[in-house]
Design a protein around this nucleic acid. Sequence first.
RNA 1: GCGGAUAUGGUGAAGGGGUUAACACGGUGGAUUGUGGUUCCAUUAUUCUAGGGUUCGAGUCCCUAUAUCCGCCCCA
Length: 437
Amino acid sequence: MQKVQPKILPGFMELLPSDQILFNNMIDTIRSVYEKFGFLPLDTPVIEHSEVLLAKAGGETEKQIYRFNKGDNDLSLRFDLTVPLARYVAMHYNDLVFPFKRYQMSKVFRGERPQKGRYREFYQCDIDIIGNEVLPLVYDAEIPAIIYELFKQLNFGDFVIRINNRKILNGLFSYLNLDNLSADVMRIIDKIDKIGKDNVIEEFKDMNLNEEQINTIINFITINGNNDEIICSLKQNNIDNEVYLDGVNELETVIKYIRDFGLNESNFKIDLTIARGLDYYTGTVYETNLIKYPKLGSICSGGRYENLTGYYTDQKLPGIGISIGLTRLFSQLKEEKIIESTRNSLLDVLVIPFDDTYMDYTLKVANKLRDNSFKTDVYYGNKGMKQKMKYANRLGVPYVILIGTDEVEKNVVSLKNMITGEQEIVNIDNLLDVLNK
RNA sequence: GCGGAUAUGGUGAAGGGGUUAACACGGUGGAUUGUGGUUCCAUUAUUCUAGGGUUCGAGUCCCUAUAUCCGCCCCA
């Protein structure tokens, strides 16, 4: 019979069990940190009405969204978690407590051309804080505090949270009479890490910026020094623009608060080249990088937006949030060998009866272990002992319990430590104590 | 949407016109069936993405299609 070739679509990731365990561990860590800071869980539908997801529409989103019809319904798969959040907040405005802090870790979909680090289905791990009418500036500092805690726990090595404020850049562009080009200029600045200063200058020339404008921008984004020195330079710039000055003040305040949160000074840094591609950010913006692995780019980024829900309601709901593209991050961490899978199974114990004539005894042991939260499996089937041991070995089970006629008669089990190879006879009443030590 | 590269088994791959497609990993079975991870033996691609062409002869050369990968755009 002609077989169907087993295959999946490009740009979709699936993992072997050992990697899935690793991936889930990361999810668990992220969730626990998010919850530690008071974020509430949220899950929204994968499919939404196209008119909702495309309310803003235009540009790349529309080109990349998975959109289809079912009957008369025009439907789309969500391409991020922020737009569904906006819809959710607008829809449940009356039932939510503000500031509303929610986390969501789910799959999103983008019909892009897949390539390195670029997936069509991927996990985003988002947190957002939504205020009603206002959202105090302290939250702009809480976000880095969360990132800080998170990446300390994830333990991928030294990291730095780079911080900027859109108002500073927008104010500067306005001062240079570049208001209508600010989105393009920002996008180019954002690429400076990747393409270098010279190429940035080239791109500015292609945009017909004059020399003075280019020099001012380049001098500006290459301001150097520690956080206090940069703020000092920003203040002494004599850029007479209200938005600019507002941004500088915000940045200074945020930096102060970040220190109040107790972050290590080496883990956060003002970086005036951070712009973020997305156009909805209006204030503080963040990117996070691993110092030893600049190749990975930003592994966690986000920022503040003035009004999340403008397309759905008249309520003014400012917010701030970050997102981790976990699928990409995971694949990169694996590739760089920053993380490695070590286990093929989550089991603590595998119970192996020599044959199935004493299942009652075997299952009694298994039940006892499970009742005490040991992850336990039983090998059923009349294979040779060799096969059974091999199974245990391939799963990387730390302990094997062997049960045969002798064990049943004496009310004991043979407990084998698969790492050391040592084996001992343990009375069934002492089994938990022995395993716990 | 635009540009570049590559297609050999479960995986990594060698072979650059001449009978049976190297090697390694993995899988399966076995080496005194109450003991794994080491070792040894056996076995594991009627066929090289698909279709067409050149040739006495094609993974090997040519054409077309398809797929995948890598850039760009944009982004996580």
